[in-house]
Design a protein around this nucleic acid. Structure first.
Lengths: 343, 343
DNA sequence: TATAATAATACAAACGTTTGTATTATTATT
DNA sequence: AATAATAATACAAACGTTTGTATTATTATA
């Protein structure tokens, strides 16, 4: 066959059966306004002719696309992928698809992506703002135009029209550090991420407040805020950090799994025994921790559930009547400490 | 503001300026049929009124959505994510967005996803069929209906209307095994994946033909085809495999990075020295290899480029005239062996 | 058997664009 | 100043659905 087939449409079925398009449409919807025998004829003919509804036309007519836009800062971060899986699962079960875009850690790209979402392709948006995002006017604008939105991970409290899904970062990191302290560790290093991200700020706060509670002096020297966005440079930052330490820590608390692994790797190179001499705890628990020897104790973050919850909140918004103002919901999910060989 | 704003449309601009919708539409397109001064008025008013074009209406009218559907077997496989990144990058630069779905390794879900793509939401499809996919009629059906399609990874040669992007798995694994042989290794174990996937079959073929070329006897005992789809069970399979070996291998060639790591982990537990006693090579090279101690030598697969190439081929198809039959293109990308500490 | 009630279907507008053709306004040509 | 050429714009159909209202066909009621 050389020519591409013209798609079969309702009109074709209608013409073939000598009935109106409206009746065909309603028949396929099993609308009781059309009688059983007609419905059956329509279904049979639609099948025979290979009818496939046109989603675009449906969307235009109904004003709904049943697509959720998801905007993450990067693809190559298992955490975000895991959240997307959670979103996808919940969305799929509720007849929504997801359209994932990456802002590539850029405020500019974030805005561009949101504009493209705004063009009516998506019914609502789930996003994790980039660390570059200082001004959140573009988000507030969008919600005030009536675009349902849910923020997760790097949430911004100033965004008033969107729901928030997060974990209690302060508490989680407090617990992890407290755990180390209770194991008798006193010189606990902290390796965090980009300072502009609220999650990393909070994890740092939790670290400090645990030290504080147990009257353990805080040493600026034991703290590293990784600023690299690129995997390659993280390596080097962490290597340098340990190389320049004047006192050797007896524990390291890191804000991601990957930092935890890199820390262990560096420590092992300097012949440190893990966990005897140095205990290490990572954050996230997305599979990496179990691969390494020794396995890495982690704060287990419910990433998948985070996605599910975000999708749930968004779909709830989508079902709210259009004429009422949305009331912001904030959901905090629980983390737990998964103990492995590194502690 | 309590009520959601009604979206501004071309008609609103037209009414405000007392001109026709068509002129507004053309003005915004910078169509020379409308004079400069009118164009400027229209742009200004559109800006003032906060006009945002409706993508759905555009799509219905133009018959194009500028969306590429991507169907992968699973999200939690860095290889697929990396391919998606490649697709996304190329697509974005050519004014396409991507809609990613997962078939969750199920033939049934694969079909369902394709049906949903067929409903007109996407202009073309890039997919990696699941290992469960025996009958490819659904793929041939779709291409013969005129849906542009590109297959990657687990390609199926029977699909005649789609382009293929792949690596030379036979050659790549042959080279890796030959490398081990040239290093003097004689008892080389093979750890492959699901037997139904062509990539794994080919990598096994390459392994055997390297042994054959160098007259090294093939031992069934040294071969494992991992059948687990779940990360947790892979662990166990590989553990069992090594436990039950009667002769100890002096090298292991594995078909994924993860198998390579698991193999190393298991070997280290039995006090084997890597690479002195056992050399290990993985396949893929998606970051994991560099984290572990020792670092893992890998066949580096150009995943990102694979995605780019797939997107390039698809977009080329999309630009072909509708009335000619597409001629199948097959692209084979080069791999290279990245040497690290494990060999 | 005429009329009312209801079932079944048809008609037509709407969703927001694009685009071919028709029309009107402007400028150039004589 | 009348006409031709062209520039600028308006009109209307099309994309494939959905859905409110109008119409016709069927059955029930008297």
């Amino acid at each position: 066959m050389v020519f591409k087939k013209r798609r079969v449409k309702l009109e074709d079925i209608a013409r073939k059966l000598n009935i109106s398009i409206a009746t065909v449409s309603r028949a396929l919807d099993k609308n009781p306004r059309v009688k059983k025998s007609t419905q059956e004829k329509v279904f049979k003919t639609a099948e025979e002719m290979g009818y496939m509804p046109n989603q675009i036309a449906k969307s235009l007519s109904s004003g709904k696309t049943n697509i959720i836009g998801v905007l993450i800062p990067r693809y190559d971060e298992p955490f975000f992928i895991e959240v997307c899986r959670g979103i996808d699962q919940y969305a799929r079960n509720h007849n929504y698809k997801i359209l994932i875009s990456s802002s590539r850690n850029s405020y500019q790209f974030e805005k561009e992506n949101l504009i493209s979402f705004e063009k009516g392709l998506v019914d609502g948006i789930i996003l994790s703002p980039t660390h570059e995002t200082e001004n959140v006017a573009h988000l507030n604008d969008l919600t005030s135009k009536g675009m349902p939105m849910v923020l997760f991970d790097n949430i911004r409290e100033e965004v008033s029209g969107a729901d928030h899904v997060m974990i209690d970062d302060i508490k989680s990191s407090f617990n992890a550090v407290e755990f180390l302290i209770k194991k008798g560790r006193k010189k606990i290093a902290f390796i965090g991420g980009i300072k502009q991200k609220k999650v990393f700020q909070d994890r740092f706060t939790g670290y400090k407040s645990a030290l504080n509670k147990y009257k353990i002096p805080f040493h600026e020297e034991l703290v590293l805020h990784c600023n690299s966005l690129d995997r390659e440079f993280e390596d080097r930052e962490i290597l340098d950090f340990f190389k320049h330490l004047t006192t050797s820590p007896d524990a390291v608390f890191t804000c991601t799994d990957n930092y935890g692994l890199l820390a262990m790797k560096t420590l092992l190179k300097t012949e440190k025994k893990i966990p005897e001499e140095v205990a290490v705890i990572g954050f996230g628990d997305l599979g990496l921790g179990e691969v390494f020897v020794p396995t890495l104790t982690c704060v287990s973050q419910p990433s998948f559930e985070m996605g599910q919850k975000a999708a749930e909140l968004l779909i709830k918004q989508l079902n709210e009547p259009e004429d009422i103002l949305h009331k912001k919901t904030v959901v905090k999910l629980e983390t737990k400490l998964t103990q492995r060989e590194s502690t």
